[in-house]
């Protein structure tokens, strides 16, 4: 597709947004910066962003934001191309950082999912796995969340523009609950909550509506999933429900994957 040529002397850094297997919600977060969008579009040259523009400028790009997981051979090739044309590559969201909800296929038998949905699975070009971007190419920075947080996205973009390291939390949702003054659902009510092992970033939204955290932002930096699992089981959570709790949008994040597998029912050897 043709688009405007780069204006000679345009010194603005270029920004590209790429999509792989995903829901578009994380790139929508960029458009959800309603009050900042036009200012942002002035500070950076939006060079490739098909959800927003029919114009596309050829690389290289200063910053690439990558949404989605890798689920086809073609996408495995395309992500290498994106890497080669990007100075800084930032993965945005649980699909790109952990394989997403579609990563549940990694726990199923080969071909099982395709057979369940399609009459002719042989027409599909899908891989049996959904993998995070970092399993394919080097990633400079990962922004977690399902979806990512608007404030964190702006922090990343402004930090990169200023040439500094963005400030992103590695601690758990618990700290955000304390900061909000939310009473602990797990301690006070025995509600299953992944807050103690989940990375902060959403603003501890779920406990604020009397709901246990379900792990949208994936594991915190030093997540003790084993201790939490013991506590949830002693509070009466069934092990199959515990496995499901760890297996949603960040099922492929190593700490969650390991804890889920530890509680899988043991099948008798056949």
């Amino acid at each position: 597709m043709t688009g405007p040529e780069p204006v000679p002397g345009d010194a603005r850094p270029s920004l590209a947004v790429w999509k792989f297997a995903s829901c578009d919600g994380c790139q929508l977060t960029l458009l959800d910066c309603e009050e900042e969008l036009l200012a942002l579009a002035g500070a950076v040259r939006i060079a490739h962003f098909t959800e927003m523009s029919r114009a596309s400028i050829a690389g290289p790009y200063d910053v690439s934001l990558v949404e989605g997981s890798i689920t086809t051979e073609e996408d495995a090739r395309r992500i290498r191309e994106v890497r080669e044309s990007s100075r800084t590559l930032v993965t945005i969201g649980a699909c790109a950082t952990a394989g997403g909800i579609q990563g549940l296929r990694n726990f199923a038998a080969s071909g099982e999912y395709a057979r369940a949905v399609y009459a002719h699975p042989e027409y599909l070009a899908s891989l049996d796995t959904s993998t995070p971007v970092e399993q394919h190419v080097h990633v400079d920075l990962a922004l977690h969340g399902c979806p990512i947080d608007r404030g964190q996205l702006l922090e990343v973009v402004t930090a990169l523009l200023a040439g500094r390291r963005p400030v992103l939390p590695g601690h758990s949702v618990c700290e955000q609950c304390k900061a909000r003054g939310t009473v602990c659902l797990l301690v006070a009510g025995g509600t299953p909550c992944l807050g103690p092992v989940t990375r902060a970033g959403c603003g501890a939204l779920c406990p604020a509506v009397d709901r246990g955290c379900f792990g949208c932002f994936g594991p915190a930096d030093t997540a003790n999933t084993e201790a939490l699992a013991r506590r949830l089981i002693s509070d009466g959570l069934a092990t199959d429900a515990l496995v499901r709790l760890f297996r949603t949008f960040n099922a492929g994040a190593p700490a969650f994957e390991k804890e889920g597998r530890a509680h899988e029912p043991r099948h008798p050897a056949s």
């Binding site: 297997a21 829901c23 919600g25 689920t71 909800i101 199923a108 599909l124 499901r244 949008f249």
Partner: peptide, 25 residues
């Protein structure tokens, strides 16, 4: 690429589809 929601919903609890299917779009 397909994400196989109709397959991955099998075996999930009846309370989970609102959160899981939200991720379609």
């Amino acid at each position: 690429p397909p994400r196989f929601f109709e397959a991955l919903l099998r075996g999930r609890d009846r309370l989970e589809p609102p959160d899981i299917t939200a991720r379609i779009c």
